[in-house]
Simulated assay, not measured.
Amino acid sequence: MSHSLQSMWRVGLAGDEQKELLINSFTDRFKQCIEEKNYILIRFDIIQGLGKLYDEIGEEEIKQKASDLIATEEDGKYQKKYAAVWRNT
């Protein structure tokens, strides 16, 4: 599963419709995976995927969505881990 999430961001490069679908899917997955085993890794892969998409197309909407998702993380340790992905962008 992790490898799929790590490469899925590329779908967002195909066009505006695909980008919106990807962002919405990532957002839903980020919110819904909380009950799963390894949800922290899933969330990290999603944030990282959004970061890679942002690096490629530079749209502020992507950065804002990632920031909003990071802000929903209740554990400060993991919130910092997710935010670290964006310090390099």
Rank of each mutant, 00 (worst) to 15 (best):
S2C: 08
S2E: 09
H3K: 14
S4Y: 09
S7K: 07
S7D: 05
M8Y: 04
M8R: 12
W9S: 05
W9M: 03
R10P: 04
V11D: 04
G12C: 07
L13Q: 08
A14P: 03
G15Q: 01
D16F: 04
E17H: 12
E17G: 10
Q18H: 08
Q18S: 11
Q18M: 10
K19H: 05
K19G: 05
K19F: 02
E20C: 08
L22Y: 00
S25L: 09
S25P: 04
T27F: 00
T27S: 12
D28G: 11
R29M: 10
F30H: 05
C33K: 00
C33W: 00
I34T: 06
E36W: 01
E36K: 00
K37Y: 07
N38T: 06
Y39V: 00
Y39K: 00
L41A: 13
L41Q: 07
I42M: 03
I42R: 00
F44W: 12
F44G: 05
F44D: 13
D45F: 02
D45R: 05
I46T: 02
I46P: 01
Q48W: 14
Q48C: 11
Q48F: 11
L50Q: 01
G51D: 02
G51A: 07
K52P: 07
L53V: 12
Y54R: 12
Y54V: 09
D55A: 14
E56K: 14
G58P: 05
G58E: 07
E59Y: 05
E59G: 03
E60K: 08
I62Q: 00
I62M: 01
K63V: 02
K63C: 11
K63T: 05
Q64K: 15
Q64R: 12
K65G: 01
K65T: 14
A66N: 03
A66T: 12
L69W: 02
L69F: 02
I70Y: 05
I70G: 06
I70C: 01
I70N: 09
I70V: 11
A71G: 03
T72H: 07
T72K: 09
E73M: 15
E74Y: 11
G76I: 14
K77Y: 15
K77C: 03
K77W: 15
Q79T: 08
Q79E: 06
Q79A: 06
K80G: 14
K81Q: 10
Y82C: 00
A83D: 11
A83W: 05
A84E: 10
A84N: 06
V85P: 09
R87V: 14
R87A: 13
R87T: 13
N88I: 09
T89F: 15
T89S: 15
